[in-house]
Amino acid sequence: MAVRTEPLQAFPAPSGRSGFLWDAYKRMRRNRAAMISMVVIGMLVVTAIFADLVAPYSPSEQFLKSSGGVVENPLAPRRTGKFERPTADHVFGTDQLARDIFSRTVVGLRISLSAAFFAIVVVTVIGVVVGTFAASGSKSFDDLLMRVTDITYAFPDLLFIILLRSVFADSLFGFKSVLGIEASVLLLFLAISLTAWPTMARIIRGQLLTIREMEYTIAARALGARQSRIAVRHWLPNAVGPAIVEATFLAPRAIFAEAALSFIGIGVNPPTPSLGVLISEHFSWLQINWTGVAFPTATLAVLFLAFQFFGDGLRDAFDPRSRR
């Protein structure tokens, strides 16, 4: 454990945004796991953006072969083109409709990644705003907001998600797709976000309640700073650590939630292959076609771990008190 050499900071980095970010970046550069994760995320994002160029085939193209109608005996050996082992033509093999698993995984990555970012933005915005207001506003305002979070929070997610999915069916305010992503995918993730924000709001609020009692808040108040100024300048940067940990967990959680929903049968429309759809679709063929589950799952796991380590690195970097 290093011994503190700098003077104690009562007020975290008030010197403007670029400096704050630059400091954070400098601190993060020293964290190897976070830097590797950042590169991995970057590579995955680039792959996702250029999915159409990376994928050798269309994700819905079927390479079924028929050996001429062997239907009398189900046990007769057959070549169907399905469940091919990885070859040069199909590097991840083929699935239950003889589609190229690699192409589907790449396209699935794009859908899942964009959806995860979408979820992060929605949850963070709602969570931070509600959490901050709850902790800094008047008592009755806090109560009101917390009652609203309570209701959202105590609401079983599944019903809510099925509802949104059913009411809007396959279009979002009339749009069948937004930015090339099917509306049903966005809806699903919107629904997931709308059920996930209370956790974020609670973390922010809980963190702020603790900070409120700390010395520098009292000091700032004593110096006559306005309540809103205290909230924005002093509390938020301090609450940002837990929020980022929560947000980094959210990306894979959103993708996982979608996978789980696909598994019980309320996922996104085919032929759109999100990673979750791929895993759950291939899941019933797991014992005869391991590649179908393994590659999308591995992609998901890489995403998951990268977000974990990156988030951790960010947390350490943003936290002005953390020292190596």
Binding site: L97, S184, P271
Partner: peptide, 27 residues
């Protein structure tokens, strides 16, 4: 049913040249 729909889509698009979409709904 999803598998069948995806297969039908491919068959009709390939054999007739029409465009086919799939709408999946909860049971």
């Amino acid at each position: 049913s999803k598998l069948t729909a995806e297969w039908l889509k491919q068959q009709w698009e390939k054999n007739l040249g029409i465009s086919v979409s799939i709408k999946v709904l909860e049971r």
